[in-house]
Every structure is written in C-alpha cells, then in structure tokens.
Measured scan of single mutants.
Amino acid sequence: AVSDRLIGRKSVVMEAISPQNSGLVKVDGETWRATSGTVLDVGEEVSVKAIEGVKLVVEKLE
C-alpha cells in the first residue's frame, strides 16, 4: 500500500503534537495528521512509526 512506504520515513512537525491532540507533519512534501505519545514542537524531526486509519503515529528522532 502507498501508506506502507511512509513507515520509517523522516518527517518534520508542522503543527505541534501532544498525547491529547493530534498535529500535522510533512512527509515527502505531503502533509499528514499525526499523533504521538509525547509532546512534539513545530520544526522537530520525527520518524513515522505506524499508521492508524488516516493518521500517522510518529516519535522524535534520537
């Protein structure tokens, strides 16, 4: 599936994300709604860990 190619990809937070609120990330020039178990600020680099419905699950790059 097209979405499977996103797992493991680097992306950049475009709208802040917290455990309570989804935000936005940009992956390969496309904007996606995303969630995370931690707070992520605009501009942080993250990695796509999973896809749940139409949202990406991301975490901060170490």
Rank of each mutant, 00 (worst) to 15 (best):
T35P: 02
M14P: 00
P19N: 04
T35G: 05
I17D: 03
E30L: 09
S18A: 06
V12G: 03
K55Y: 15
M14L: 14
R9V: 08
L61H: 08
T35D: 07
L61G: 07
I51P: 00
A1S: 13
P19L: 06
S47Y: 15
E59N: 05
N21A: 12
R5L: 10
K55T: 15
V54F: 14
L24D: 00
D28R: 05
K60E: 04
K55E: 14
V39N: 13
I7H: 04
L61W: 14
E62H: 12
A16P: 10
E52L: 12
L6C: 07
K10L: 14
S11M: 11
S36K: 00
G8I: 04
V2Q: 11
S36F: 01
G8H: 04
T35A: 06
D41Q: 14
S3H: 13
R5Y: 10
V54D: 15
G37N: 15
E30Q: 12
L24R: 08
R5I: 08
E44V: 09
V48Y: 00
D41I: 11
A1Y: 12
W32P: 00
E15D: 05
L56V: 07
D28C: 15
E45T: 13
S22A: 13
E15H: 07
R33S: 12
V48T: 02
E44T: 12
S36L: 02
S47K: 14
A50Q: 06
K49R: 10
R9W: 09
K10R: 11
K55G: 10
E45M: 12
Q20R: 09
P19R: 04
L24N: 03
K10A: 08
V25N: 01
Q20M: 12
I51D: 02
K60W: 04
V25G: 00
R9L: 12
V2G: 13
L56T: 02
T35Y: 06
T38H: 13
V2F: 12
A16E: 07
S3T: 12
V25M: 02
E45N: 08
V13P: 00
V27I: 15
G23K: 00
V27C: 08
G8M: 02
G8R: 01
T38M: 13
R5Q: 09
E30M: 11
K26R: 12
K60A: 08
V25F: 00
Q20Y: 12
G53D: 06
E62N: 12
Q20G: 14
V39I: 13
G37V: 11
E30N: 08
E52G: 04
I17Y: 02
G23M: 02
S22F: 09
A34T: 03
G29Q: 07
S22T: 13
L61Y: 12
N21D: 07
E44L: 08
V48S: 01
L56R: 01
V2Y: 11
T31E: 09
T31P: 05
V13F: 00
P19T: 04
T38E: 14
K26N: 11
R9G: 07
V27F: 06
I7M: 05
K49P: 00
K49N: 06
S36M: 00
R5A: 10
R33T: 12
V46K: 00
N21H: 14
A16I: 09
K55Q: 15
R9T: 08
E44N: 05
E45Y: 13
K10F: 11
L40H: 12
S47V: 15
